[in-house]
């Protein structure tokens, strides 16, 4: 038997993975992008080519509120946990007991639907503990303004521990001598944070922020269980809109066209991420 080159051997090892990858990730994704140019139903066979009609429909209306909601949710659910996680990481890195790190992981570890159930209960208008504590009777998830805030708070709760872990790992690789030298030179805590910690953390902080941003940009579970995209579409993000258009409206053409527009925005973020990871 002829001996394989190293390259051939490597491709042989990868063959099952590559086949799976092509079948369940690459093909469906490409097929989805193509479907955007057709009028197609989820439940009836056959389809008609309609060119850019689906995209024109979306850009003439639905796309913009969905983009706005997605951006509001993504920014809120990324910036707030990032800040909380950063503050917590700095605190834990200053010599507090190590078991605290593990304790803080709970919100992030428990399953996403459990997070949603728990906060549905907390935000419950009639018996919820939040109204109980505040002495109010607000329907948090029933009004557009508070619904978005509630969804962001919920996602923040589930995300900040991950931010903390990653940023803490970054802080722990920072040479202590740098801080000590700066302190000897008379730099205060804030000055040391700005001129020693921040430059050291730039790489990891950027990656963590960007990854969370990308994940939130396509987040589905919490929003879907908490509000289903409502009330009156106030929390309808791309993920929820694509899902609803396909599986409640049975309109695959518009669903995938919206998905295609979404994907273009995501791709830009991904390129940014891959560049950062590579450096």
């Amino acid at each position: 038997m002829r001996k394989l080159t190293n390259g051939q051997f490597a491709w042989l090892l990868m063959a099952p993975g590559v086949a799976l990858f092509l079948a369940i990730i690459a093909y469906p994704l490409v097929a989805a992008l193509v479907t955007g140019f057709f009028e197609q139903s989820l439940v009836r066979p056959g389809r008609t080519f309609v060119g850019l009609a689906n995209f024109a429909d979306l850009l003439g209306g639905d796309f913009w509120p969905v983009l706005r909601n997605t951006l509001v949710f993504t920014l809120g659910a990324t910036v707030i946990p990032f800040l909380l996680g950063y503050v917590l990481a700095l605190a834990l890195n200053s010599g507090l007991p190590g078991f605290l790190r593990g304790l803080f992981l709970f919100p992030w570890v428990i399953p996403g639907v459990v997070v949603s159930f728990l906060w549905l209960w907390i935000f419950n208008a009639n018996y919820g503990v939040l109204n109980g504590l505040l002495g109010t009777e607000i329907s948090w998830l029933g009004q557009p303004g508070t619904a978005m805030a509630a969804v962001i708070v919920t996602k923040t709760w589930a995300s900040f521990p991950w931010m903390m872990v990653m940023l803490l790992a970054g802080l722990q690789t920072m040479p202590r001598e740098l801080h000590e030298a700066a302190a000897v030179d008379g730099a205060g805590a804030i000055r040391r944070f700005r001129s020693v910690t921040v430059p050291h953390m730039k790489g990891i902080a950027g990656i963590v922020f960007l990854l969370e941003f990308i994940w939130n940009f396509q987040h589905f579970d919490t929003i879907y269980v908490l509000t289903g995209g409502g009330p009156a579409g106030a929390t309808k993000t791309f993920a929820v809109a694509v899902y609803d258009t396909a599986f409640k409206g049975f309109d695959l053409g518009h669903a995938t066209a919206l998905g295609g527009l979404w994907m273009v925005l995501l791709l830009m973020l991904m390129v940014l991420y891959l560049r950062k990871e590579a450096s």
């Binding site: 369940i24 994704l29 479907t35 990308i214 993920a239 929820v240 991904m270």
Partner: peptide, 19 residues
């Protein structure tokens, strides 16, 4: 492979369902 972790699930789902 790295990028595929970031592909939107809801979109993938639409064609996986058809597949």
């Amino acid at each position: 492979v790295l990028a595929s972790q970031l592909f939107p699930q809801a979109l993938l789902l639409v064609t996986l369902y058809a597949l």
